[in-house]
Simulated assay, not measured.
Amino acid sequence: MSDQVLIGLYSLLAGGTVGAAGLLALRLLRHRSIAVHVTVLLVVTVAAVAAGVITVATAMFLSPHDLQVVLLTVAAAVVVSLGVGIAFGRRLAAAAVWSAQARENEQRLETGRRELVAWVSHDLRTPLAGLRAMAEALEDGVVADRYTVAEYHRRIRVETDRMTHLVDDLFELSRINAGALRLTLARVPLADVVSDALAATAPLAATRGVRLVAAESGWPVVRASEPELARVLTNLLINSVRYTPADGTVHVEAGHDQDNAWFAVSDTCGGIPAADLPRVFDVAFRGETARTPGEAGGGLGLAIVRGLVEAHGGRVAVDNITAGCRFVVRLPVGA
Rank of each mutant, 00 (worst) to 15 (best):
I321Y: 09
T234P: 11
V316N: 04
L185H: 12
V188S: 04
A186G: 15
L237R: 06
P227Y: 09
D247G: 08
I272T: 10
V193L: 11
H312E: 05
V316M: 03
N320F: 09
S240C: 02
R315P: 07
N320M: 09
G209Y: 11
I321V: 15
V252A: 02
V241C: 03
I321K: 11
V305S: 06
L277Y: 03
E228S: 11
H312S: 05
R306Q: 07
V221W: 09
A311L: 00
I321P: 08
A317I: 05
G255T: 04
A261D: 10
E295K: 07
G294E: 15
R242M: 10
L277R: 03
L308F: 00
W262L: 06
V210K: 04
R211F: 09
D319K: 13
P227G: 07
T207Q: 15
R315Q: 12
A261Q: 08
V316D: 03
V213K: 13
P189I: 10
F285W: 02
V241P: 03
A197W: 06
D259Q: 06
V221R: 14
G298M: 00
P220L: 15
V210P: 04
R242I: 09
A200G: 08
R187I: 13
V194S: 08
R315H: 15
N235K: 08
W219H: 13
A246S: 13
T234H: 13
S225G: 01
A317G: 08
C269F: 07
G248Y: 00
E288N: 09
G313E: 03
T289A: 15
V194Y: 05
T292P: 01
P203K: 15
G294Y: 12
F327A: 02
G301D: 14
I304V: 10
G324E: 01
I321D: 11
E295N: 14
I304E: 06
V210F: 06
T289H: 14
V221G: 12
P227D: 07
V328R: 03
V280C: 03
W262M: 05
A311E: 00
V252S: 02
F327L: 06
P278Q: 12
A202Q: 14
D257N: 05
G255C: 00
C269L: 09
F285C: 02
I272K: 05
R223C: 13
L185S: 09
G218H: 03
H312Q: 01
A290Q: 13
